Amino acid sequence: MFTPQGPTLRELAVQALSSVERGYDLLAPKFDQTPFRTPDAVLDPVTRALRASGPYENGLDLCCGTGAGLGVLREVCTGRTVGVDFSAGMLRVARDEEPDASYVRGDALALPFGPAFDLVVSFGAFGHFVPGQYARLFSQVRQVLRPGGRFAFPLPAPARPGSLAYWAMLGFDGAMRVRNALWRPPFVMYYRPFILSDVRRELDRAGFDVTLRGLPDLGKRPDGSPRCGLVVATRR
């Protein structure tokens, strides 16, 4: 699937019927050959935007996967960079990709750090959290940031109702809900619930001041609004 080096359809099926942790352990060696890895076309504009607002000292990549976001931190942080993920398989690949970073196997809902970081980033991981977990997730991020530290992540504009992307995401989320109703353990991955209004409200409640910066390199929608923005939440 996807590329000759990518996972087979059978491998993807086995992953989808596993737990989230086990599924990513299985997929890790071929993850970067799938569309699920955040592309450089997104990482590069985020790097430029953060470089303009930096520099930062210590950085954390939350749910780092195979380390794509650690390359961003390497460019904008002057101190240490750390990746945290609960998949040992993904962390093994990340160590090969970004050997100068440090790695911790841990749960994003129970981060094993004090206020040691000036910047936390995350790419493509929020679908693994249901809305009822946002408050705890953002509270954990606040806990590991120094006062004035920032939590930054790209957030695409919602798909227009009736568009191909809209129906694709609706179909994917519906299939996942059916899968989780019929099969255990669950595999939590939903694309549609993580929307700006809810995210902004929960970040504010967790103690952040929130701004949204456009990423013009990623294009504009027909109404002139950006296709993707960079959410920057500053710890109060």
Rank of each mutant, 00 (worst) to 15 (best):
G6P: 01
P7M: 02
T8G: 12
V14G: 04
Q15G: 00
A16D: 02
S19V: 05
V20E: 15
E21N: 04
R22L: 14
Y24I: 01
D25F: 07
A28T: 11
A28P: 05
P29N: 09
D32W: 07
D32I: 13
L43E: 11
G54T: 10
Y56M: 03
E57I: 02
C63T: 05
C63Q: 01
T66I: 01
A68K: 01
V76Q: 04
T78E: 13
G79Q: 11
G79C: 14
V82Y: 05
D85W: 09
S87P: 01
A88K: 06
G89V: 08
M90A: 07
L91C: 05
V93P: 04
R95T: 03
R95F: 03
D96L: 13
E97S: 14
P99L: 09
V104K: 11
A110D: 13
A110L: 04
A110S: 14
P112C: 10
F113I: 07
F113D: 10
G114R: 10
P115F: 13
F117T: 00
D118T: 14
D118M: 04
S122T: 15
F123D: 07
G127R: 06
Q133L: 05
R136T: 13
S139R: 15
Q140N: 13
Q143W: 12
G148L: 05
G148D: 03
G149L: 00
R150A: 12
F151C: 10
L164P: 04
L164R: 15
Y166I: 11
A168I: 07
A168F: 05
M169H: 11
G171I: 00
M176G: 05
R184E: 15
R184N: 14
R184W: 09
P186Q: 07
F187H: 13
M189V: 12
R192T: 14
P193M: 12
P193E: 06
P193F: 10
I195W: 06
D198A: 15
E202V: 15
R205H: 14
P216Y: 06
P216F: 06
K220N: 02
P222W: 07
C228F: 01
L230M: 13
R235W: 11
